[in-house]
Amino acid sequence: MEEIKEFCIATKDFFVEMSKGMFYITHPQELGTLIWNGFVARSFIICTVICLTSLIIYMCGSKKARLGVSGSFLFYILIQMLNAIFK
């Protein structure tokens, strides 16, 4: 009897997750919004890591790494501006 109960719970979980997947397949705007919001939420740490890594490489003597410092900072500002426009 316990196996049947576990099977029913697993089947229910499977169909719940499949319905979420089908929702995003049939509503691509919602999927795009989900991806964009995740990207915006993680953009600070990504740009900070790139900026600090480029800064360390620049301090070691590579002149090209200077673009990574300013570029990541400007890219973060651009992401935040676009997020403010699309909200």
Rank of each mutant, 00 (worst) to 15 (best):
E17K: 11
Y24C: 04
I46W: 01
C8D: 13
G21P: 03
V40P: 00
G61F: 02
E6I: 08
L34M: 15
I45D: 02
A84T: 11
G68T: 10
A41Q: 12
I46P: 00
F75A: 12
M22W: 11
Y24P: 00
H27F: 07
S72F: 00
L82E: 08
G71L: 01
R66N: 08
S19R: 07
H27G: 13
S43C: 06
G32W: 05
V49I: 15
S62F: 06
E6L: 11
E3L: 09
M18W: 11
R66K: 14
T33S: 15
E17N: 06
T48E: 12
A84R: 06
S62G: 13
F44T: 15
D13F: 06
E30N: 14
G71E: 01
K5P: 00
K5T: 09
C8I: 10
I46C: 05
I79S: 01
K20L: 11
K12L: 08
M59V: 14
C60A: 09
M22G: 07
M22R: 13
I79K: 02
L31E: 03
N37W: 10
T11V: 04
L55R: 02
L34G: 10
T33V: 08
F15E: 06
G38Y: 09
I4P: 00
I57G: 03
K5D: 04
T33M: 10
S43P: 04
G38S: 14
L34Q: 12
S62A: 15
I25V: 13
F73S: 00
G68W: 00
W36V: 04
A65H: 02
L31R: 14
G68D: 01
N37A: 13
A41K: 15
S62L: 09
Y24T: 06
T11R: 03
